[in-house]
């Protein structure tokens, strides 16, 4: 066995199966939910998270011991895990909830991840999550997990530099009005912003290989987590529709219409 001066990194990447970003969602006539018979794919920010984990391994080579993807979702969420495995994750965990169950709230997801981290024999040094899922748009899971674990958090990351020897990371974050650089001690929670990287496509051979990679299954009961929503969704509705006001012929007409609306030079 190769002697190692520092413990090797174990990375956990939570991913979510969400309605594909290009699909325009339709509210059902009862105003209780959506037509979910549409294309689903991995939440785009989570793809960036998986990609980042792989790039960290590409940069640090053997210092990364494992990349494990985890999802909480219906049976079909297995596809999302397979995508993460095909991109380059080593193994995965599927916490399977019934097809009809509502998507768990961020706090329940964070508690699940906390429990999963507790059960990892080798520990977890880095959790990389998307900054938000594009369905509920809440953007809270990473911060909640950091709170529960008492770990530092680097949200909205656009650059992550890990120093394995020092067990720390320097992260550039996107903040209102610009950027911020912080130094964080591991273990660390990172949430990804769009600019962190450009996720790769899984190649066909890798997709085939991913089918053989391990998927550990849990039920919510196994982990002792209650997924009953604490918020009650009373209604979902279509937003008020905007009607385009038509087109103008040329710049003169545009200027005239703007003046009519009270818009003139400042």
């Amino acid at each position: 066995m190769r002697p190692s001066p520092v413990r090797l990194l174990n990375i956990l990447v939570p991913v979510k199966r969400a309605v594909d970003y290009a699909v325009k969602i339709r509210v059902n006539p009862q105003q209780t939910g959506f037509d979910l018979n549409v294309k689903h794919s991995m939440n785009p920010f989570d793809e960036i998270a998986v990609e980042e984990a792989i790039r960290i391994r590409e940069r640090l080579k053997d210092a990364v011991k494992s990349i494990k993807a985890v999802t909480i979702g219906p049976p079909k969420a297995l596809d999302t895990l397979r995508t993460a495995l095909a991109m380059g994750a080593d193994s995965s965990i599927h916490v399977e909830i019934p097809e009809s169950a509502p998507s768990p709230e961020p706090l329940a997801v964070a508690k699940t991840l906390q429990e999963i981290i507790k059960r990892q024999k080798d520990g977890v040094d880095l959790v990389i999550l998307g900054k938000q899922s594009i369905d509920d748009d809440l953007g809270m899971t990473g911060q909640m997990l950091a709170g529960l674990l008492g770990w530092p958090q680097a949200t909205f990351a656009s650059k992550v530099d890990i120093d394995v020897a020092k067990k720390e990371a320097v992260v550039t974050r996107e903040i209102d009005g610009g950027g911020e650089e912080i130094r964080c001690r591991l273990p660390l929670i990172v949430t990804t912003d769009l600019r962190l990287n450009e996720p790769r496509y899984a190649s066909l051979p890798n997709i085939m290989k991913a089918k053989k990679k391990p998927v550990e299954k849990f039920s919510p009961g196994d982990l002792g987590i209650d997924y009953t929503p604490r918020f009650e969704t009373l209604k979902v509705a279509e937003p008020p529709q905007r009607v385009g006001g038509g087109k103008v012929q040329d710049v003169d007409e545009l200027v005239a219409k703007l003046k009519e609306a009270g818009i003139t030079a400042a």
């Binding site: 809270m140 909640m144 950091a146 709170g147």
Partner: peptide
């Protein structure tokens, strides 16, 4: 819903076992 509050509030909420809602 500023970038700092988005980072802070969920962290505090989780420690108090409270769910949170954004935007």
């Amino acid at each position: 819903t500023s970038s700092f509050a988005k980072s802070l509030l969920p962290r505090v909420a989780a420690k108090l076992d409270a769910p949170a809602i954004s935007d």
